[in-house]
């Protein structure tokens, strides 16, 4: 167990998010069971008031979730000095088997909580809560994941012991490494670049089509924006990061977060997360466009979401182009 202030802060943050979500879910269950908009009964009025509480709780939970994701990476970066062989967060996370699952769950939960807030926002704009049951059922799915994240994170920190020998990015993300994480590295640069360009182009094209009124393009846009998220991360590992490190063999997704690389990693990941959340939300909301009250509400919301997603992916693309073109490294593509 390592007890540094940041570890305490993270545990506290996770406990807070878990508590908020648990409390929100308790009301979610009651709303699922007793909701009846037509009734003017006292209990219905009380439930309606509770929806405000749940929205507020989840908004804060999301804010803390995103904050704790970055603080977690920051902490993993900082703790690397405690472990033999760890040069950055990649090594710290590898110290025990809970490290990588925790961070994956953190990213997933941030995505889900963001989507929930967007669904909630949309639902509140329609005059008869058309998505109320769906969104509270969705909430009941997210809450256990948030709790699981808190538990995994606790297990991870509890299992940390200084001086443990771990392997770091050099071997984890090295060319000859084995295992699921490192298989990303093995992806050849040429095809990876093609996949990245393809997924981003499809996202941009379908997004622009969707915004100009082709409803059909919306589904494609949503799927491709989510795919672009994962492909971009894979591309960061396999193809983009060597340009940033100016070393053809270094593929770490975490070292780019360090000061030496002017914290550029935070911009990469923030723009990706910001692009993926609204993009995925478009896909979640699209099937409901036929529902009575949403007909008027949904189109402007979808347009704005699409714009936000496209804008952030555009920023991401600029960052990628910038990193590659200003790099001293020149890679032969075959």
């Amino acid at each position: 167990m390592i007890v540094s202030p940041a570890v305490i802060a993270l545990m506290l943050g996770s406990a807070a998010v878990g508590l908020l979500a648990l409390y929100a879910s308790a009301w979610g269950v009651r709303i699922l069971r007793h909701w009846d908009l037509r009734s003017g009964s006292e209990s219905q009025l009380q439930l309606e008031k509770r929806t405000y509480l749940v929205s507020t709780l989840m908004a804060w939970a999301f804010a803390f979730q995103v904050g704790s994701l970055f603080l977690f990476i920051f902490t993993a970066e900082d703790l690397h000095r405690l472990f033999v062989g760890a040069m950055c967060a990649a090594g710290t996370l590898n110290v025990n088997e809970f490290g990588y699952p925790t961070i994956l769950l953190k990213v997933g939960n941030a995505l889900l909580a963001g989507i929930w807030l967007i669904v909630n926002y949309t639902d509140n704009r329609a005059s008869d809560y058309p998505l109320i049951r769906k969104k509270y059922a969705f909430l009941l799915v997210i809450t256990p994941l948030l709790l699981a994240e808190a538990v995994l994170q606790g297990a991870y920190f509890a299992g940390l012991k200084a001086n443990v020998i771990t392997s770091c990015c050099g071997s984890l993300f090295g060319a000859e490494a084995q295992g699921p994480v490192s298989s990303l590295v093995g992806l050849p640069a040429g095809p990876m670049r093609a996949a990245l360009i393809a997924s981003l182009s499809i996202t941009f094209a379908s997004g622009l089509l969707f915004r100009s009124g082709r409803v059909r393009a919306g589904g494609l846009f949503s799927v491709s924006s989510l795919a672009a998220f994962f492909i971009s991360i894979a591309a960061l590992v396999s193809y983009i990061s060597p340009y940033i490190y100016e070393l053809p063999t270094h593929h770490c997704p975490f070292c780019i977060l360090q000061r030496e690389y002017s914290y550029i990693g935070y911009f990469f990941y923030a723009s990706l997360l910001g692009g993926a959340i609204p993009g995925a939300a478009v896909g979640v909301l699209l099937p409901f466009r036929g529902i009575g009250c949403l007909q008027g509400v949904l189109p402007p919301v979808l347009r704005r979401l699409t714009f936000a997603s496209l804008f952030l992916y555009f920023l991401f693309s600029l960052l990628v182009v910038y990193s590659i073109s200003f790099s001293a490294l020149i890679v032969e593509m075959d």
Binding site: P5, A9, A16, Y52, G67, F74, D78
Partner: peptide, 28 residues
């Protein structure tokens, strides 16, 4: 920035969690 972020989490998060329900109560 790392220390500042940590401190922010250690102090602001508990305060916010403690006050969110009462403010909701007042607002309704």
């Amino acid at each position: 920035p790392y220390q500042v972020a940590t401190l922010f989490f250690l102090t602001v998060v508990p305060y916010t969690v403690a006050t969110v329900i009462p403010s909701w109560g007042a607002a309704t």
